[in-house]
Design a protein around this nucleic acid. Structure first.
Lengths: 103, 103
DNA sequence: CAATGGCATCAGTGAAAACTGATGTGAAAG
DNA sequence: CTTTCACATCAGTTTTCACTGATGCCATTG
């Protein structure tokens, strides 16, 4: 469905660096140091982006000593995937039935 | 898959007004006048957003006299839906197998 | 207890981009 | 032919937001 929560998710994932983070975390749970090494971005910058991702419910943290692991919450991504799939399906039937408003 | 084309699609759909346009067009093919009435946005503003959507391959135009119909291209949305679905699936197995990098 | 390392917070800066008003174009209506 | 309407283009303004440096906190290490 097309919820305001999903709209916020899209906004959050629109940033290239955040999308890269998500892509990395999908394959492997990592901590900030790893993400710094993988992306080449500065620690402060990454920390700010991870904050945004956490507040949006895309990732969750798991403290481990003085490290902090970041792992994805698949539900958020699944919600987005379903939404775009539904939109595509609706659009297909709209086009196949040539449903248009008169002007 | 996680392509640069999909990254561009996400960026384009991150704007609230553009997402609203896409949501409207999914159910019904419309022209600019209708979208002005539905969204309350100014004609110039909508025209600029529709330009972005067209250049990104999200919509296509169909001239009709002095009107211009806008219709969705479902392939773009399906590509996004598949990408997020795959990311979610990958993230699920990563979490289930507790795959994490040592630090 | 000091020193170090991992990470978060904050305020400031710069760049990207959304929005607007003015204007142009082409098609239909009169 | 003139007017009107739908829409596009463009330049200017404003706003949003990514990025940075400075700083502080907490946990480990020596």
């Amino acid at each position: 469905m097309m919820t305001s929560a999903n709209a916020e998710l899209i906004r959050v994932l629109a940033d290239p660096l955040r999308l890269r983070i998500v892509s990395l975390l999908a394959h492997e749970t990592l901590c900030t140091t790893h993400l710094v090494a993988e992306t080449g971005a500065r620690q402060t910058n990454l920390s700010n982006h991870l904050r945004v991702l956490r507040e949006a419910g895309v990732v969750e943290t798991e403290p481990c000593g003085r490290f902090t692991y970041y792992k994805l919450r698949p539900a958020a991504l699944e919600s987005l995937g379903a939404m775009f799939g539904e939109l595509a399906a609706t659009a297909r039937t709209t086009i196949e039935t040539d449903r248009k408003r008169a002007c």
